[in-house]
Design a protein around this nucleic acid. Structure first.
Length: 345
DNA sequence: CCGCAGGGCCGCCAGT
DNA sequence: CCACTGGCGGCCCTGC
């Protein structure tokens, strides 16, 4: 098992057949008191707007509560009228569990409430379980994460580790894909895991279309480590933005730290320090992320050879590209292309 | 498989 | 006293 499983690391599992072409795949969103409205919106927006090229919906998204339909309070002071009970879990191919704020046995003691345990028992064998944020505490309490890498909101990673020592908690990634069990980091990382699943099920073209219409990046790199420290400082301050833009323009060339620092008239030391403060990762890590992003894009949208892509993305050699892709995505270029290259069914 | 050279990264610390 | 800078040195990784 890799010591550090990066974002969206696992290759799509062969056991996960995409839904039948004509029947939409049912996604059940299982909510509890104290849910975060923003998280609730994510699966409805991402799965709910995924369409085939001729406009047919690919998913049916249903909202349910473990103890039957009822108004469920959110952490924002209003309630949500939940129309379904746990019976919809029996026909769901995917079950999404968002966070729940407030006193709960799953979060406080690491055990399932009777209602939630009964609800989860109705989930079809083979269905995918997906947590957002502290929803991971439900999966962990059900024992579904034992021995597996998993993530949750960075502020609660230590707590999860303490409650469940058998879970391999990864506090620095946005999303962990174990095939049939997926966990994502805090709140907005729900976007990443849902988009990842659409991509897994239907390819990059469909997922990118959803991302474009939702106006979010098709994939986000960097991990949640970059959000743990202070994020973007106020504008106008000396920043590394110009050097980053310059670097992106000439990503195919070798880029030395001293060149980037010179762009901002900073010493190398100050530049690296500023860069980490702003981006949460070192300049070298960031460059690699950008090169991986460009590689993904070229693998998805072109038939260029791996050697050619290595030249265009600045990896230099195909060997280096393969190694980086293996590290960050866990797959070879050809496997990635086979999975995500858009083809007409 | 090894060792070497060149960078990157970052704690530390003195200087402004 | 404080915030910030940038040089140094040790450690690591990567390519040859």
């Amino acid at each position: 098992l890799p010591a550090r499983l990066p974002h969206a690391a696992e290759a799509p599992s062969a056991t996960q057949a995409p839904p039948a072409a004509d029947a939409p795949h049912t996604v059940a969103v299982l909510v509890h008191d104290g849910l975060i409205p923003f998280e609730l919106g994510i699966p409805f927006r991402i799965f709910g707007t995924a369409r085939t090229s001729d406009g047919r919906p690919l998913y049916e998204v249903l909202l349910c509560a473990p103890d039957g339909p009822r108004p469920v309070p959110t952490d924002a002071g209003f309630t949500v009228d939940v129309p379904h009970g746990p019976e919809v879990l029996e026909r769901a191919g995917t079950v999404v569990i968002p966070a729940a704020h407030g006193a709960r046995p799953e979060f406080d003691e690491g055990r399932l409430s009777p209602a939630t345990a009964a609800a989860l028992a109705r989930v079809r064998p083979g269905a995918r379980l997906v947590s957002i944020c502290t929803g991971a505490f439900f999966l962990a309490a059900a024992g579904l994460l034992d021995g597996l890498p998993a993530t949750t909101h960075w502020a609660h990673a230590d707590h999860l580790r303490r409650l469940h020592p058998d879970v391999l908690v990864q506090p620095d990634v946005l999303c962990v894909d174990n095939g049939s069990v997926l966990t994502s980091a805090g709140v907005a990382a729900g976007l990443d895991v849902c988009l990842h699943l659409v991509r897994r099920d239907h390819g990059a073209a469909v997922a990118n279309d959803v991302a474009r219409r939702t106006v979010v990046p098709p994939h986000r790199e960097g991990g949640q480590a970059q959000f743990i420290r202070r994020p973007v400082p106020a504008g106008g301050l000396p920043s590394t933005a110009a050097a980053r833009a310059w670097a992106l323009d000439r990503l195919d060339r070798p880029l030395a730290l001293r060149e980037l620092a010179a762009r901002e008239s900073m010493s190398v030391r100050t530049f690296t320090r500023r860069f980490r403060e702003e981006m949460g990762v070192s300049p070298g890590q960031w460059l690699t992320q950008q090169r991986v992003e460009r590689t993904r894009h070229l693998l998805e949208t072109t038939d260029l050879t791996v050697d050619r892509i290595a030249e265009l993305t600045g990896f230099g050699t195909a060997a280096s590209l393969r190694q980086r892709l293996r590290e960050t995505l866990g797959v070879s270029p050809s496997a990635y292309r086979r999975t995500f290259r858009f083809t007409k069914n």
